[in-house]
Amino acid sequence: MLMKSLSLENVSKSYGAADVLKNISLEAEEGEFVVLLGRSGCGKSTLLHAIAGLHPINKGNISIYGRVVNDIPTRQRDIAMVFQSYALYPNMTVADNIGFPLKMRGLQKPDITGKVLDVARTLQLEALLDRLPRQLSGGQRQAIGRSLVRDPKIFLFDEPLSNLDASLRVEMRAEIKQLHQRIGKTIVYVTHDQIEAMTLATKIVILNKGEIQQIGTPAEVYHHPANLFVARFIGSPAISLLECTVEGRELAETLVCGKDEHQLNLPVRAADKLGHGKHVLLGLRPEHIRLGRHQGAAARASVGLVEPTGPEDVVFLDIGGQKAIARFPTNAVVQGQIIDIDLDVSRAVIFDAVSNQRLAANFI
Rank of each mutant, 00 (worst) to 15 (best):
T74S: 15
F155Q: 07
L47I: 08
I98D: 06
L128F: 15
R173M: 10
D71N: 14
V82K: 02
L54K: 00
V68C: 12
Q84R: 02
I98V: 10
F155S: 09
L102D: 07
I112F: 07
G66E: 08
F155E: 08
K115P: 12
I112A: 09
M81A: 00
I79R: 00
I144R: 01
P73Q: 07
A52N: 07
V116P: 02
I112C: 11
V94D: 02
D78I: 05
K109S: 15
K59I: 08
Y65S: 14
V82T: 03
D71L: 04
K59E: 15
T93V: 03
G138W: 07
A80H: 02
P133S: 02
G106R: 06
D111Q: 15
F155V: 06
V116E: 04
K177Q: 11
L161G: 11
R169D: 10
Q108Y: 00
K153T: 13
Y65F: 15
I51E: 10
L54C: 00
N61M: 00
I72Q: 05
V119M: 04
D71W: 00
L48N: 11
V170T: 14
P73C: 09
T74E: 14
A50E: 01
S162Y: 03
G138R: 03
I144N: 01
N61P: 00
A166M: 13
G114N: 14
L54E: 05
L148G: 03
V68A: 11
A174E: 14
E175S: 00
L168T: 12
K109F: 12
S147P: 03
I51Y: 12
I62H: 08
A52Y: 04
R67H: 15
P152A: 12
A166T: 14
S147H: 04
A95I: 06
I72F: 01
G66D: 12
I62K: 07
Y89T: 01
D158C: 06
G99I: 06
Q181C: 04
V149K: 02
V69M: 15
F157A: 04
L102V: 07
G106W: 04
L48H: 10
A50C: 13
P101Q: 11
P133H: 04
K59M: 14
R134D: 13
A95G: 10
A166N: 12
L128D: 11
T122S: 12
R169Q: 13
R77A: 04
L129K: 08
L117V: 11
L123T: 06
P56Q: 07
F155M: 14
D78V: 06
D151L: 02
L48E: 10
F83R: 02
L125D: 07
D151W: 00
R77K: 04
H49P: 00
L123V: 08
T93D: 06
L161H: 09
L47S: 01
D118K: 09
V69Q: 12
R146E: 11
L156T: 09
I154A: 14
H180Q: 12
A174P: 01
S167C: 10
L107R: 12
P90E: 08
